[in-house]
Simulated scan of single mutants.
Amino acid sequence: MPLSEEELRLLEQMERALVEEDPKFASTLRGTSLRRTARRRAIAAGAVFVLGVCVLMAGAITNLWVVGIAGFVVMLGSATIALNAIRGQQAAAAADASRTAGHPSHGFTVIDGGRRPRRGRQARAGRSTSGSFMERIEERWRRRREENGGF
């Protein structure tokens, strides 16, 4: 259930008060631990990747193809985890940067109560179904540019 405007305002006031009273606790809640966790996960995945290379080489040296395949699977899994962790670390850093940029509560943001804009019958009725695919794509592109201020 989405929050009302008054509830959102009260939540923002409580967040500001928390930042003023206990800035150390507030900085803990900002998400720095997410970056740290992602970094640890990436480092651990790198170590497991090196272990997978060792297992792959051991399988190649001993002519046991099952061991070599197991080493490759370990390498593949750890590379996937490392890439996801690096992406998560970059996303957390970008979120921290966007949160702290000029926001009065110094890093806290108020989500719009989980609400998404609803597309009712009026929005659907304006949609043209007789146009070609490219015309519809161009119309969507024009709408996006208008909504984003020309960008």
Rank of each mutant, 00 (worst) to 15 (best):
142 R>Y: 01
151 F>S: 01
42 A>V: 01
40 R>V: 06
136 R>F: 05
46 G>R: 06
58 A>W: 08
50 V>A: 13
35 R>M: 12
71 G>I: 12
124 R>P: 06
32 T>L: 06
5 E>K: 05
111 I>S: 13
51 L>A: 15
133 F>D: 15
144 R>E: 01
118 R>V: 14
40 R>I: 06
134 M>D: 13
114 G>Q: 13
38 A>Q: 04
15 E>A: 06
92 A>N: 03
108 F>D: 15
46 G>D: 14
135 E>I: 04
111 I>R: 13
31 G>M: 10
17 A>C: 05
136 R>N: 14
59 G>V: 06
53 V>N: 05
131 G>P: 11
89 Q>I: 07
137 I>T: 09
76 L>G: 13
112 D>I: 01
24 K>D: 15
85 A>L: 09
110 V>F: 07
143 R>S: 04
77 G>W: 03
110 V>H: 12
147 E>K: 00
36 R>G: 14
88 G>D: 15
75 M>I: 13
58 A>V: 08
40 R>S: 12
25 F>Q: 03
129 T>H: 08
4 S>P: 01
67 V>Q: 11
111 I>M: 10
102 G>N: 07
109 T>H: 05
25 F>N: 03
126 G>P: 12
103 H>I: 06
33 S>E: 15
110 V>P: 13
41 R>A: 15
23 P>I: 03
96 D>W: 05
146 E>F: 00
36 R>I: 11
75 M>K: 11
96 D>Q: 12
100 T>W: 02
142 R>T: 02
98 S>I: 10
4 S>C: 02
72 F>P: 06
131 G>R: 15
83 L>I: 04
83 L>P: 02
66 V>S: 14
122 Q>S: 11
102 G>S: 07
146 E>P: 00
34 L>N: 11
66 V>Y: 11
114 G>W: 08
25 F>C: 03
110 V>W: 08
